[in-house]
Design a binder for these strands. Sequence first.
DNA 1: ATGAAAGCGCTAACAC
DNA 2: GTGTTAGCGCTTTCAT
Lengths: 349, 349
Amino acid sequence: MTPPLGDKRNNDAARRRLQMADIARLAGVSVSTVSRALNGSELVNAETRERIATLARELNYSINLGAKNLRLQRNHTIAVVIPYDAVSRQHITDPFFLSILGGLADAITDRGYDMLLSRVDAENLDAVARLVDSGTAIGVVLIGQWRHHDQLNQLAARKLPIVVWGAQLPQQMYCTVGGDNVRGGRLAAEHLLQQGRKRIVFLGDPQLPEVGQRLAGYRAALVAAKVAPRAELELAVPFEVGAARAAVASLLDRKIAFDAVIGCSDLLAISAMQVLREHGRDVPRDVAVVGYDDMPLTNYCDPPLSSVHQPVPEAGMQLVDALLAMLHGQVAAPRLLPVELVIRRSSAA
Amino acid sequence: MTPPLGDKRNNDAARRRLQMADIARLAGVSVSTVSRALNGSELVNAETRERIATLARELNYSINLGAKNLRLQRNHTIAVVIPYDAVSRQHITDPFFLSILGGLADAITDRGYDMLLSRVDAENLDAVARLVDSGTAIGVVLIGQWRHHDQLNQLAARKLPIVVWGAQLPQQMYCTVGGDNVRGGRLAAEHLLQQGRKRIVFLGDPQLPEVGQRLAGYRAALVAAKVAPRAELELAVPFEVGAARAAVASLLDRKIAFDAVIGCSDLLAISAMQVLREHGRDVPRDVAVVGYDDMPLTNYCDPPLSSVHQPVPEAGMQLVDALLAMLHGQVAAPRLLPVELVIRRSSAA
DNA sequence: ATGAAAGCGCTAACAC
DNA sequence: GTGTTAGCGCTTTCAT
């Protein structure tokens, strides 16, 4: 067993941490004065204040924030939670989620808060509530709505300050921020229909709220164009490259005709492109392909991939702002972020 | 001005936070007993302990960790810092850094610590010391050594517990964990030499420690193969796609002959491939290309990109273990992680 | 303008 | 076994 860490003994060994009393003694004043001085209080003599500030700076002293926060009953930490699958214990590998994380880091630090990154078991979202109940964080941004709608509702029912990246659902008690998925699905399908494509494959698991809405948009576009949706072209694959490849290959093997593919992530779409090429189909001539998320990698594949763009930095800001609004006692309404289709060669005429 | 957040008034408005005294009153015992019970002390009657535990669970009470840590002089937070460097323009959106972040999140949570993600101005690394001095974190993992060698040495001189992802340098006082860059550069070059390539372009800014070492490995391989390194083939481009494209295009424009490219990131290598294709050069026939980091995207470009693989999950673990060792008072020696070349079509015979 | 003292929510001697 | 008490490092009345 390794010894405990971060406790007094260890710190003593390294260097005893300086505290206010030390500064006070050295400055020949009381702790209260030091406290006031360091917090820029007008009450303390300007000259003394300067002397104390200098002393503190020279000694690299900084206020113990734990103690300060305890005394002030305050906290500036926002927890960002990524549920992981208990079975695979797999961490987030999807580039889109990782970039959302980057956007959140920016938004949270810009607003003067700290970001605690926390992985929790998806089956045990109670751990999320504990982050707030224990005073570790003042609120939670959760990335990965997945199938946890009910659990998330329960957390919200407990009055847990939480904002979720994902889709807005019926009977939803928690606040979501997410891309306009219906519009995203529709834009992709409309674009392909305009290119004269009629048999458009949809690649994604509609059980997932966001994907379900994209599918709805896709269907709506088909109907509006008087093209009947075909069940055999809706492939319910998870966000996993292997499954996507297999599904597309199976379609080709079974000689089911199609002239376009919409993937619910860029990776899914690119996997489809690869399978198509391996089977001798040309993209975009034989099959046009559109992806989702518009990650940088869309520019680096061949042909460059058309994709539905989601505003990542905006997502970070909106998630944080919604959470802060909630903490201010306001009702945070779900927010739908604009998406747009970026057309590249994979679907060009 | 928005009102302060996370302070008492706001919490009162929402729901007053339960505390030990409340549980004690409800259970008809003293706070100490509750404290002992909740910490599983054998001292308290098994039956009382169970009663208290149940009560706490039913009321969703959880111990205030801020207060607990203050009292225990303890802390379980590790700060992960990503300095933003204006010069090299590579920041948190780089896929490699983001995946390192994922690896760290795994490693830190697996060991029972919390991960605080912090972006700091690279010009002001003092903010890093403050994370520890203020008791916010017990130590720091810094991703992005860049040109901050001297500043990092100063931090280490202050006895700041810090581990840096990057290259081991002379006169280094801080602990680094990094891939074996010399070997990575050498492997890439040797592989290309074996394919009969003699005029190998090196794409990357050698001012950056990691890149400098890769360049050294590259040169060593050339020399060993009796091929003289040529200054005009060493392109000192930053980690930025535009610069890489321009550099390669300029080479082509100036009709400087080359038959291979090593990029210091996958993005750099892919950018090179795109420029080559735009100029009618076939990859790998005319020019073989090798990237660095072996991110998933290497599989999705055309042709699939050969790349030097760096062990990301291993990196997270080693960084954290080195930091913990340091906090245990041990001397944490720099660690070099094995890299290997993954050969794909972009450089195949 | 400054200091003494109380207290944030918790734990750990030290009593009994 | 359980309660009483002191104190973690800070801020803030309340005195002076």
